[in-house]
Write a protein that binds this DNA or RNA. Structure first.
Ligand code: MN
Ligand code: MN
Ligand code: ZN
Ligand code: ZN
Lengths: 160, 160
DNA sequence: AACCCACTTGCAAGTGAGTTGCAATAACTT
DNA sequence: AAGTTATTGCAACTCACTTGCAAGTGGGTT
């Protein structure tokens, strides 16, 4: 269907902060980490993507720059701990990483849709439950994450 | 932890089906599987537990009966596919299994809340998204499952 | 009661994601 | 420029889970 399978619906752009080389170096240093080439490349890569990246995807992309997978992993984890990335588990036993809005942690948390056919992940902007449903869910516990699973438009089309 | 942790909201009564040897054999056969000793022991074990079981826990418990871990895994997966168990992922990259109330899951599909602390799964009756959110999700694909994760009321209480 | 065979099992080896130890290297501090 | 300490590459490792295969068995059939 759409050319832009991952994430880009017409609804509202992800509102990404500046992700140029310099401001990215600053971000890294501001959380007490050294702005090494590997770290910089990793954060830039994740920032450029509109949907969460698996370690495997990141490692493959960064291998071209001669960066080792262990380094990629350590950096993804370090950046996550530092609050520049968020790590999530969407039910398929693979960690995915995406850039946070900049502020540390769980704030700009948003729902995701994962395709059970192709595994593609789409970020959703602030899904809302109806009042009654919200009440029901709150009666059960404090919801920290909303995950939708299903067939993405690419996989669902008869042509696909 | 409360005695009746699982699904013990006003929403869905515990309603555990009989889990004696005989009815358990029947359950297994009713889904087209053979009621072997290994399979029977596995289902009985999971049914007896009040919280979801990891494969490692199940394998350890069943090793005493001389059942191999690969067999345990295959059976947990087979029983899950057959709808007698539910498999869930709490965010730590370990599958956990628990007996379903009897409903096979795919037939009467409804959202679930899963506690990332204790693993308990609560069935939500009829979660609805707001019109706008529904539209957004439908723009991405056909949603077949809604999963909420968070801290259940039992785990969220200060006393817990 | 014996028979059959697809389903199941035990065992051992394999996979894949993610981690770790360590010596070499490079960022930042002074 | 030198020193300190974080970071890197590499290879080996762990952990959760899967798979291949030969031997065994559940349960329907005769
Ligand atoms: Mn996202
Ligand atoms: Mn349910
Ligand atoms: Zn898809
Ligand atoms: Zn809980």
């Amino acid at each position: 269907m759409s050319l832009n399978h991952h994430g880009a619906t017409a609804l509202s752009p992800p509102a990404r902060l500046p992700d140029d080389l310099e401001s990215t170096q600053d971000k890294i240093r501001s959380v007490g980490l050294r702005a090494t080439p590997a770290r910089l490349a990793t954060l830039l890569l994740v920032q450029q993507r509109s949907s969460p990246l698996t370690h495997a995807e990141a490692a493959q992309a960064l291998a071209a720059k001669g960066i080792d997978k262990a380094t990629v992993f350590r950096n993804l984890n370090d950046l996550t701990e530092a609050g520049l990335l968020r790590r999530s588990e969407l039910g398929d036993h693979v960690w995915r990483f995406e850039a946070t809005g900049g502020h540390t942690g769980s704030e700009d948390n948003h729902p995701h849709f994962i395709c059970i056919d192709c595994g593609s992940v789409t970020c959703l902007n602030d899904l809302q439950l109806t009042a009654g449903s919200k009440r029901e869910s709150e009666g059960v516990g404090q919801v920290t994450e909303i995950l939708l699973r299903g067939h993405c438009n690419n996989c669902h089309e008869p042509s696909c």
